[in-house]
């Protein structure tokens, strides 16, 4: 079979429709991951050993199992206990929880990397815990985290095709349905690959910029 440009132009609008859902799922998933990761990171630092151990195990468990199976779990098991979610919502929650556990590690490393002396200095200048967090610790902890978080953002974008397995009509699913109805696989599948490659190559340039801007603090 040969590459057919007219077919490409014909299917492009459908694929772009899918791309919109892909981007929407990525952005929403990233928001969920950012918030959920923060909750995990804070719970992980809890002084109550039971809480921090449980949270640590939960995060390890999520990171050690495939996102696809987690999506199946959310999409197929939760309705049995009365929680019915639309495919997109289930997908966003799945992405958010999975990448939230990765984001939690980034937060934790960022916070742990602020030298102890900064805490002591904050205490010595009579700042409250709240003030210490807001004015001393977080401003130093957040910038080095940005490139790492952006890295996971790109990784998450690349994983969104998995949502097609739970019937979200994103880019991959649109491509599959086009391919199945026309029996032409070359163009849709290749275009999906090209879309992802182009977007992630562009994001990598953005990532380099973020690294230059923020991660130079501890440059040796």
């Amino acid at each position: 079979m040969e590459w057919d440009w007219t077919f490409v132009w014909q299917i492009l609008p459908t694929l772009l429709q899918g791309l919109k859902i892909t981007i929407l799922a990525t952005v929403l998933g990233a928001l969920v991951a950012a918030v959920f990761g923060l909750v995990l990171a804070i719970a992980r630092r809890s002084r109550n050993a039971a809480v921090s151990r449980t949270v640590g195990f939960f995060a390890d468990f999520i990171r050690g199992t495939p996102l696809l199976v987690q999506l199946y779990f959310i999409f197929y098991v939760l309705p049995d206990i009365g929680i019915r979610l639309s495919p997109l919502v289930a997908g966003v929650i799945g992405l958010g929880i999975h990448y939230g556990t990765y984001a939690a590690e980034v937060y934790r490393a960022g916070i742990d990397n602020v030298p102890r002396g900064q805490w002591e200095a904050a205490r010595a200048t009579n700042l409250s815990t709240r003030q210490a967090w807001i004015h001393v610790i977080l401003p130093q902890a957040i910038p080095p985290m940005i490139p790492a978080l952006a890295n996971y953002f790109i990784a998450m974008f690349k994983e969104t095709p998995l949502l097609s397995a739970i019937t979200v009509l994103e880019l991959m699913n649109q491509a599959k349905s086009v391919a199945n109805s026309s029996y032409r696989y070359i163009e849709p599948m290749t275009l999906v690959g090209v879309f992802f490659l182009v977007i992630s190559l562009i994001s990598v340039v953005g990532l380099r910029f973020l690294e230059n801007r923020y991660a130079r603090v501890d440059e040796r």
Binding site: P161, M172, K176, M189, T190, V192, G193, F196, V204
Partner: peptide, 15 residues
């Protein structure tokens, strides 16, 4: 690294 394993797998299998 620019595309996901899923896309690559489908490409290898179908294209």
């Amino acid at each position: 690294r620019g595309t996901s394993i899923f896309v690559q797998l489908f490409w290898v299998y179908f294209v």
